[in-house]
Design a protein around this nucleic acid. Structure first.
Length: 425
RNA sequence: GGAGAGCUGGCUGAGUGGUCGAAAGCGGCGGUCUUGAAAACCGUUGACUCGAAAGGGUCCGGGGGUUCGAAUCCCUCGCUCUCCGCCA
């Protein structure tokens, strides 16, 4: 959520910045609503003040043993007026909230202009795509061996966009998880957390998935408002919802391994082959909660932490700065890491690292006590995948394939594979 | 699943219809004393929101109700704890 005071104070500026990401804000409607809100609020509070005073006087008169009948007559009809004013105010406020919760974050000034992924800007590149002297196979073909990746059985168990991993492939998948968790906890100083995979609506509103993107989620209990998490970002960031932390505790750095569940509504026919776009996948997520002044440097560092995983796995990648039109709803700036996939002869997204400024923190009321002012102030939140495990598995399998279909285990993973150096075809 | 007890400020905890945003203690902050520190003593210390300010309003788990007036009474939902049952 944007700061309502910022919207009030510099509406035209906000409108311009939102246009950069292709969002049209109805400023006239908002201004009109704001005037209504103000009028109703002033009226309501004046009536409340009157009621409070008169009721207090009744109490005093009663205590003094005076006749309170005349005073009671005075307040007659007041409560109806107050109720009416309250209702009017509530209605306007609800309308207002609906609009405010639907406004995306303002893009940072360094975010490139543009409307879609074609306008994203490459920031840097690491590693050289390997030259193959044989016909390259993609991960689906390579995974067919010994049913390493078994999509048919998964579709029997559930439906499309699921997979069963078997034998060494299942173990390689697990090795990737352990490797990434160890790296971030031991080398990058993140605190490992284990969190619920089902969250309530408040949490989803906090990070920005609700109310606008409900169709992307799997609801497991509509009555309770329980949803499967689409990313660990939701439970982990919401750890600080409604909290005020000491400055000395900052920055907070969390890493979590969780499955992620996405309905992929609206992506019918897209990436239907293989492991790229599944309803269920594993992800290692980095989350940071920092002082506002530290947010932008933190985004660079967090992105570098994600990059380290690819470097240790010796997988070629590039870093893309997303253009304003391609960024997620809550993000002020996003870097995507794209890994080279020989099977597709292209770079594909494997990580997304974002700074949300105070956008999520305001929705969550996640705050810190600023020693300079002594007052609670909003935190800034960041997160990034480091990495998406399924896609990392795809990248390893395709980049490390041999002519006979066997897969070399990257050096960094060998100790996690019990010393195995090759998945034998 | 059954029975019971709770939910109050950063924490512990008092408060059963009126000047209660709320005692007290702890913690925090400032000061006195001290070479410095500790102890002791004194003072201070909730959040949100409207307003240029003066000053208002809201918040005692969430929502609703009764009342001129609710932390306090009623309903409902959520959560926590204890005991019993079941269980990875």
């Amino acid at each position: 959520m944007l700061d309502p005071r910022l919207i009030r104070a510099s509406l035209s500026d906000v409108v311009t910045q939102l246009e950069k990401r292709g969002f049209k804000l109805d400023s006239a409607g908002l201004e009109a609503l704001e005037l209504k809100r103000k009028a109703h609020q002033v009226e309501t509070e004046a009536l409340q003040n009157e009621r409070n005073n008169k009721s207090r006087n009744i109490g005093k008169a009663k205590a003094a043993g005076e006749d309170i009948q005349p005073l009671l007559a005075e307040v007659a009809g007041l409560s109806e007026k107050l109720d009416a004013a309250k209702n009017a105010l509530q209605q306007v406020q609800q309308e207002m909230d609906e609009i405010l919760l639907g406004i995306p974050n303002l893009p940072h000034e360094s975010v490139p202009a543009g409307r879609n992924e074609n306008d994203n800007v490459e920031v840097r590149r690491w590693g050289e795509p390997r030259e193959f002297d044989f016909k390259i196979r993609d991960h689906v073909d390579l995974g067919a061996h010994q049913q390493w990746m078994d999509f048919e059985t998964a579709s029997k168990l559930t439906g499309s966009r699921f997979v069963v991993l078997r034998k060494q492939m299942a173990k390689l998948h697990r090795a990737l998880i352990q490797f990434m968790l160890d790296m971030h906890t031991i080398e990058h100083g993140y605190d490992e957390v284990y969190v619920p995979y089902i969250v309530n609506r408040e949490s989803l509103r906090g990070t920005g998935q609700l109310p606008k993107f409900e169709e992307d989620l799997f609801c497991v209990d509509a009555e309770q408002g329980y949803y499967l998490i689409p990313t660990a970002e939701v439970p982990v960031t919401n750890l600080l919802r409604d909290e005020i932390v000491d400055a000395a505790q900052l920055p907070l750095k969390f890493v979590a391994h969780t499955p992620c569940f996405r309905s992929e509504a609206g992506s019918y026919g897209k990436d239907t082959r293989g492991l790229i776009r599944q309803h269920q996948f594993e992800k290692i997520e980095l989350v940071q909660l920092v002082k506002p002044d530290d947010a932008w440097p933190a985004l660079e560092v967090l992105t570098a932490h994600a990059e380290t995983v690819l470097q240790k796995l010796e997988l070629p990648y590039r870093v893309m700065a997303l253009c304003a039109g391609d960024m997620g709803f809550s993000s002020a700036k996003t870097y995507d890491l794209e890994v080279w996939l020989p099977g597709q002869q292209t770079y594909r997204e494997i990580s997304s690292c974002s700074c949300f400024t105070d956008f999520q923190a305001r929705r969550m009321r996640a705050r810190w006590r600023n020693p300079d002012t002594g007052k609670p102030e909003l935190l800034n939140t960041l997160n990034g995948s480091a990495l998406a495990v399924g896609r990392a598995l795809v990248a390893v399998v395709e980049n490390y394939q041999q002519v006979d279909g066997s897969i070399v285990v990257p050096k960094a993973l060998q100790s996690y594979m019990g010393g195995v150096e090759l998945l034998q075809a």
